[in-house]
Computed example of a mutant assay.
Amino acid sequence: MDNISSHHFFTVTALDEWDWTSRIIFFSFALPGYLLTIVLNAALIMIIAFEKALHEPMYIFLCNLCVNDLCGTTGFYPRALVYLLTKTNRISLEECIVQSIVIIVYGAGEFSNLSVMAVDRYIAICQPLRYHSIMSPFAVWSLVTFIWIYPCFLSIMAILVAMKYPFCRNDIVKLFCENLSLVNLQCKQDNLNGIFNGWMYVTAIALISFVLISYFKIILACRKSKVNQEKFFSTCVPHLISFLNYIACVFFDSSQTEFRAKSLPRMLYTFLTVIFLIVPPVVNPVIYGIKLSPVRAKILGGGSSCLTQQPQ
């Protein structure tokens, strides 16, 4: 095969079997979904940013989660909408790399955000008297730094691995670019790809295990305390829903092996591979807006007096 890396273009084949009617139907849901995601996350960010009573660790981490969700959806939706509406199925190497970086940052950032939020909830419920001393401004901003440094480092490493060898194919079967798609197009692969992928899975499993262990201890602390139970239902339930929702969506994406890609209808396969990019960013602000009484009170115009009623 000729080396196609010099051509600097890839062909996205995810929509090749879609007729025009299917494209219009999908577009009619995708565009409102994108706009709704932007509005919901931007509204939550502004509420937290402009309401001083919400400048607490839990809400700072929630604000970062919303920013990360906006990052992921903006990296995916615009290009996907172009594919759907214009039948343009080519993407340049530079655009593919940028999209890959953004989506990796989003995917890893969701894990780091939710893990840090689990730390915050664990300290608030299991060590409430030490909460403010442990979650000092320095600690909070250190955790915020981790939230962004980890996914940025991961994305850079992933792209370096994906760009190690030239490309001999140009067909991307998913609706977006990411490092695994680029790796599969390489003329040659070595053990470095497997080592890096293994490291990504190990770190993801470690973060998931950390969250689950934190919640196991939180549930134990809530058994005999009504105060802790109230904190759990008001602040932990939305986090737990967001966490489980994201894990389920990632599972749907990662479970789509080459065998499944050939056995599933192309439209269903395409939807399952993008579900982690479209569902969590719209579900997270809705869940937190409904469950967190200070945010809900602000949305409903209940006044700033309600903001002091939320437990830490």
Score class of each variant (00 low, 15 high):
198 G>I: 08
308 T>Y: 15
254 S>C: 01
182 L>K: 10
97 I>K: 03
245 N>R: 00
175 L>G: 11
240 L>F: 14
201 Y>T: 13
18 W>C: 03
56 E>P: 00
121 R>S: 03
122 Y>M: 02
146 F>N: 07
228 N>Y: 10
28 S>E: 06
257 T>M: 00
274 V>M: 09
293 S>D: 10
56 E>Q: 12
109 G>Q: 05
273 T>R: 07
242 S>P: 08
44 L>H: 13
89 N>H: 15
228 N>G: 15
144 V>W: 03
67 V>R: 11
138 F>V: 03
128 P>G: 01
299 I>V: 13
45 I>S: 06
170 N>G: 15
134 I>H: 05
161 V>C: 11
166 P>H: 14
10 F>I: 02
226 K>Q: 13
101 I>G: 00
58 M>N: 08
300 L>F: 12
168 C>G: 10
121 R>D: 04
20 W>R: 15
204 A>Q: 09
246 Y>L: 05
19 D>P: 01
139 A>S: 12
196 F>W: 15
58 M>C: 06
215 Y>M: 09
303 G>F: 02
245 N>I: 00
3 N>L: 10
208 I>Y: 07
37 T>P: 02
113 N>L: 00
191 N>G: 14
280 P>Y: 05
158 A>F: 02
268 L>G: 01
59 Y>L: 01
144 V>Q: 04
29 F>L: 13
134 I>F: 12
169 R>Q: 12
233 F>C: 01
217 K>T: 11
196 F>Y: 15
21 T>L: 14
83 Y>A: 00
46 M>S: 10
176 F>R: 11
204 A>E: 11
32 P>M: 09
86 T>S: 14
127 Q>L: 07
139 A>L: 11
133 S>A: 08
53 A>N: 09
222 C>R: 07
228 N>M: 09
188 K>C: 11
105 V>F: 06
278 I>E: 05
296 R>E: 07
280 P>I: 06
85 L>V: 03
138 F>H: 00
212 L>T: 12
304 S>R: 10
32 P>A: 12
45 I>Q: 06
129 L>Y: 10
137 P>Q: 04
305 S>N: 06
248 A>C: 09
67 V>A: 13
302 G>E: 12
308 T>Q: 13
